[in-house]
Nucleic acid binder design. Structure first.
Lengths: 227, 227, 227, 227
DNA sequence: AATGAATGAGCTTTCATTCAT
DNA sequence: TATGAATGAAAGCTCATTCAT
């Protein structure tokens, strides 16, 4: 995820090819300037939008705010994005890409299903609590609150949740366990932290995530339908 | 007004305390008619606002919508509430009152701390998923999304969460357990259900709540700070 | 038509009942004030819109212009009309109503088809050249130039042209005469006058109209397909 | 007209001096290629503008549309035309040139004034109904709708109408006939056809034109001031 | 000559709120 | 108390035009 954060605008345009991104600029530095000029401001716009959507919500953010945060006039913004909703979708897309990458990176070296789940929680929580304005927007802005983009937003969220479905599917659980509820409960608990977590608190996102998973993990022996 | 707000809404919903609602008018019949008549539309406004805020969010709900849902014109609405934010606060207040009452009622006959927690979860979940537009607004509308009322909204939420603080404080847990995190995690998981719960699904709010608590309860042996 | 012009706002709201309009106010003068207050500004808006659409075209007229000509702010206009297009349609509607009334009134006392046609031309020309901003808009603003209202505008024009279809149908003409072409040619010639007629010119609309019809009338013996 | 089409961009800037156009390149052949190449896109722009102005009107056509229809970007367009209004004037100019040429060509071999008028009508109608986007714009776009170019547009129309003044002046008519009204009425009727003529209709522009003239011609015995 | 991002003024429309009646 | 027309600030967006490259 740090890597993803370091080259944010690229992720929007090109297919993610691991390892290539860091090398390419070094190989063809002469091309970079031209490209950089061509759409140098678009990533600025996206960054500004992500920051503002994340802090003030979608409705609370005015197009003028985004423009001026990006150092341009409102009209100029529409060279890059047709509507405010499209801008949100672009932020969402990259948020999903980045948090997906973060989770995948965190999970990849691990084999044990519970360890993988915990690593995913850590990555998720760090992204939505601290690191990543884009990822934070994905959690902060509710699809249903933006009618003009609800479908696209929901589809993007779905894409990310597929990751979690796989993680939960791999857990060794009693047969009758409702894995869907387990997944949604866990994500709900994680995302809810955005409402109360304060950076200056005692627990880091990492510690918090471990607590969450421990909670879940130890409980799985008796997850049964209570009478 | 708090009294007025507390009274009509109760009568509207359930005979929460049988006999009381019907008696009150009889006690003060001389004042009741004029006042009752004069105020008779305010609860309508509040109900309409609760329903709309709950379904469309705060920004998504227009004052005109509320007024027309209450059978009046926008101007008339301002006889009862000074601002749209005040209206939201009033809904919030009653939402907190009602969900508090629901939880307290559910918890009261029980003695075992875990049983009390589970009963609270059931009551909370039934309120925010099904029963109570007012309570749903409390979960649905994020204080931070309404700058003009954020403080008051947060204070009301606090008031409700005090209940949960007590419930969690009563749990027999290892000394080092972070009860604040436990509480917030649980509430986050419960509230998150509003985003994905569908009434036609397999699990009722009641079953869902039991799953949540079982999850928590069984896990409390090892909830310790990971190294 | 003079009657229609004398009470313009009424025509928009009530079905035209000949003779009643002039009497009603006298019969129930007590009701008038309340009614007059209720929508006192809406006719002002409509009049202002008609005048401006007529002089500057639809695109050339800004909502702000209409509002300030009506003595209000742009936002206030939307109490009365949902969109600028709707306002145009309302003007069109009344334009059609008024010019229809003018033509019908002029034609009614006459029996001879050619005399009726000539009277219709006089009425039409007087309306679109001098008397009636509303009627002028109907000729001035081309439906195709206002995509958002083209259908409704065309339908209204159709309604008016039906009158002319009847007038032309009644003419004693050779069987093979293409009456549709005759009608459209005549109306085209009449409407075209809006582009070049100047009030200070030698010929009045009345004289002009007579010239047009004479032109047509005398030619009808040989209107045949030339070889 | 074909000649005019063959040297489009030149006609735009200089007064037409017969014979010069073909010679100039021969005189300075060294310059021609670069110039010719450089100028090669301007006619494309003009054609695109004519097509779009004709189909969507002036206001309805965006500079971007023209540019992209001409295969260039908006900024590039301003190498050729200083303003959108200038572009319209250029289209108008060529429209007038082309329809004038068409009418003159049609009229030239004929001697009889009525036959000449009829030939002019045929040529005019074919141009504005079918053949010629440029000529269509002249009829479609009303000078008064483009304040920034109204004077120039009117002047160009005047130039074309001079032709018709001559044609009408040559007609053997009773002395008291108002030839100006006759001319304007006829042109109004012809131009009005643009609003209702459909290519799939029964009558071709040619047949239509003949009907129009027959109409006029036969009527001229009694075109007198009615009492 | 061509690009295309940027400009900036201006557009139509929205909406919480006010106020004369 | 209720009305509903009016307010006025601000919103999202458009578009002819400019300008550094």
């Amino acid at each position: 995820m740090p890597a993803a954060l370091a080259e944010p605008s690229r992720a929007l345009r090109r297919p993610r090819r691991a390892g290539t991104a860091a090398v390419a600029p070094a190989v063809a530095p002469a091309v970079a300037p031209r490209q950089a000029h061509a759409d140098s401001r678009a990533p600025l716009v996206l960054d500004a939008a992500a920051r503002l959507f994340c802090h003030q919500g979608f409705e609370g953010t005015k197009v003028r705010d985004i423009a001026s945060a990006a150092g341009m006039l409102p009209g100029s913004l529409y060279r890059h994005f047709a509507t405010k909703e499209d801008l949100l979708v672009a932020v969402y897309l990259r948020g999903v890409e980045q948090i997906s990458a973060a989770v995948e990176t965190a999970v990849q070296p691990l084999a044990d299903p519970w360890e993988r789940l915990q690593a995913a929680c850590v990555a998720h929580l760090e992204a939505i609590l601290r690191d990543d304005d884009y990822a934070r927007v994905v959690v902060r802005v509710r699809p249903a609150d933006v009618p003009g983009a609800a479908d696209r937003l929901t589809a993007l969220r779905e894409r990310y949740e597929a990751l979690w479905r796989a993680l939960v599917a791999a857990l060794p659980l009693p047969r009758r366990t409702d894995r869907r509820t387990l997944r949604l409960m866990l994500l709900g608990a994680l995302n809810g932290a955005q409402n109360w977590y304060r950076a200056d608190g005692a627990a880091s996102p990492r510690v918090l995530a471990r607590q969450f998973v421990t909670l879940l993990r130890e409980s799985q022996q008796p997850l049964r339908e209570p009478s």
